[in-house]
């Protein structure tokens, strides 16, 4: 038994190491003083962070990422929540099952294929090289995450709560606003976080539909690493990771306190 536990421990640690090793490798480089993105680090400084937040291209790309990320989050959360509300029954008709599959399809369809299709289509509607175009493209791949998260919460809501509200005099819209949505909020919030994160690191679709004016942070990192390997990439990666971890902590914390309140 102890052999089994020991090997579990070894295997678990190895998996965790495999997953986070690239992060551990890149993070210290954000604080290098050198102009090269490699080890050993001659001296430590924050010059690349200064570069990241002051240089025009980097600044622009951070703002673009925020604009597109927020736009995607709002659009994907709205569409995904509405979609999940329509698909919440545990037993769906054939039509609804098909629609559900279509909603989740962008998760498995190769981004390259989506990108080619979108570029052709967006060109017809003059959406290439526009913020709206990029936001729509990101929304397509972000919606499945919202649908999955909101559906999970909705299916856990007892229908009798909504029936009770209706019997007490609440019209369907009121039931939705006062009972269903407040109870689904944790799922909507984590869906929104996933949507924002998806938009932040989406590169392939951005390459296809975005013009030079919609260069996002991820896109900028991608081209920088090919053109001039600057440690600003490491600084950008650092910002990314810290931001993601912070969001995760906030979401977890807000859920945790809610649960604690209910138990008490």
């Amino acid at each position: 038994m102890s052999v089994l536990r020991f090997s579990k421990l070894i295997f678990g640690s190895a998996t965790v190491f495999f997953l986070i090793a690239p992060l551990i490798a890149i993070l210290p480089l954000a604080f290098t003083d050198s102009v090269f993105l490699n080890y050993p680090i001659p001296a430590y400084s924050t010059r690349w962070f200064v570069e990241l937040f002051t240089a025009g291209v980097w600044q622009r790309s951070i703002i673009n990422s925020l604009i597109i990320g927020c736009g995607t989050t709002v659009l994907a959360t709205f569409l995904g929540t509405v979609g999940a509300l329509g698909l919440r029954d545990k037993q769906l008709s054939l039509v609804l099952t098909t629609i559900k599959t279509v909603f989740l399809l962008p998760m498995v369809v190769p981004a390259v294929v989506l990108g080619v299709g979108m570029q052709l289509m967006f060109a017809r509607y003059a959406l290439t090289n526009t913020y709206l175009g990029v936001i729509i493209a990101h929304t397509v791949v972000a919606v499945p995450f919202v649908v999955v998260n909101v559906l999970a919460v909705l299916q856990g809501i007892d229908r009798r709560l909504e029936q009770a509200a209706a019997s007490l005099g609440a019209a369907p819209v009121t039931v939705l606003k006062q009972v269903t949505l407040p109870l689904a909020l944790p799922g909507i919030v984590s869906g929104a976080v996933f949507a924002f994160a998806t938009s932040l690191d989406e590169v392939v679709l951005t390459l296809f539909v975005a013009g030079p004016n919609q260069r996002t942070l991820a896109r900028q990192m991608f081209s920088t690493i090919r053109e001039n390997i600057s440690p600003a990439i490491a600084a950008a990666a650092f910002v990314f990771i810290v931001g993601t971890v912070l969001i995760a902590i906030v979401v977890n914390f807000s859920r945790g306190t809610k649960r604690a309140k209910e138990v008490r």
Binding site: R160, L161, A166, S167, L168, A171, P172, L183
Partner: peptide
């Protein structure tokens, strides 16, 4: 529709709004 029937309903699991 239920919200216009003016009937009180008590459920087995109480169906109180948890929030």
């Amino acid at each position: 529709p239920p919200h216009r029937r003016n009937m009180g309903v008590v459920f087995q699991n109480y169906a109180l709004f948890p929030h």
